[in-house]
Structure formats: structure tokens, C-alpha cells
């Protein structure tokens, strides 16, 4: 199951949705809004997505994961809109026959989501400034960071 939503994520319901008699392991990953990033204090995050592509890429990631691990069931929900400190921004639940594959599959799903799914977050800092998070781009110049 894949979903983008503006509503709070029901993590219990998501976890229950992947439970199955074929699975001996269920792994749940939650991404939550963190207060401190490199010494700056965050008050809130705003998330937006290119929804058609985000959904398509999430399906693609889940299909790839299913070829690598014996996934019994999975569920990925990403929240959009304005999120306060501690809110759950993303939830990934995966069940497999055994724990090693469940952990590995869950890690792959969240890592790949962060790499390729067109969703962005904007920091709202406590000094009143805002800043889009675009990894690899210098926020001051908008040019790629050279290595």
C-alpha cells in the first residue's frame, strides 16, 4: 500500500496492515520532525510533492524491493503539508518471513525513497527564516556543491 496524505499517519493501523501469518517479522520505520539541524532550531517543516511521480516512484521502489527480499506485505505513507516538531512525516512498514530480510528491506525502502521520490521539505527556523532542503545544492548560491 502506498499513500500520500495531508492527514496525520495512523502508524498502528499501518503496522497492522502488513501483519500476516506468513511473516515472522514486522519492521516499522518512522521519520519524525527533528528540532535541531546543524545547530539551527526548527519550528516546523512544510512538505510538498509532485504527487503523480512520487506515487509512481514509490511503487517502483517497492517492486524493486520485492525482487531483492521475500516481502510478505509493505505499506509506505508520506505526509504532506505543514508538520510540527515530533510529527511523523513518513512511515514505512514491511513484513517478511524473517527479521534480517525485514530490516534490510525496510532500510532499502526508506533510503531509496529519500534519494529518488520527488518530495521536498522546507525548514521553518525559529529566527523566522525558511529554507528549502535540497541536498547537494548550496543554499546561498543555488549552485551544485562541488566536492
Amino acid at each position: 500500500m502506498i499513500r500520500l496524505t495531508h492527514d496525520p499517519i495512523d502508524t498502528h493501523q499501518l503496522t497492522e496492515s502488513v501483519r500476516d501469518h506468513a511473516a515472522g517479522a514486522v519492521v516499522l520505520f518512522l521519520g519524525t520532525v527533528r528540532e535541531l539541524t546543524e545547530g539551527k532550531r526548527t519550528l516546523a517543516l512544510d512538505y510538498e510533492a509532485y504527487p503523480e511521480m512520487a506515487t509512481a516512484k514509490l511503487k517502483e521502489i517497492a517492486e524493486t524491493a520485492s525482487t531483492k527480499w521475500p516481502i510478505t506485505a509493505y505499506g509506505i505513507i508520506h505526509r504532506l503539508g505543514h508538520l510540527d516538531l515530533g510529527d511523523v512525516s513518513v512511515a514505512v512498514a514491511v513484513s517478511c518471513p524473517h527479521r534480517v530480510e525485514a530490516f534490510e528491506a525496510g532500510r532499502f525502502l526508506i533510503d531509496t525513497l529519500k534519494e529518488i521520490v520527488p518530495i521536498w521539505k522546507k525548514e521553518n527556523f525559529d529566527d523566522g527564516t525558511t529554507e528549502w532542503v535540497h541536498p547537494g545544492l548550496d543554499a546561498a548560491t543555488d549552485t551544485p556543491v562541488s566536492n
Partner: peptide, 9 residues
């Protein structure tokens, strides 16, 4: 569609 590097999660 054009966009800067993604930052979901």
C-alpha cells in the same frame, strides 16, 4: 516537470 534535489523522508 523541473525541480531541485529531493528531500522527502
Amino acid at each position: 516537470v523541473c525541480f531541485p534535489p529531493v528531500s522527502g523522508g
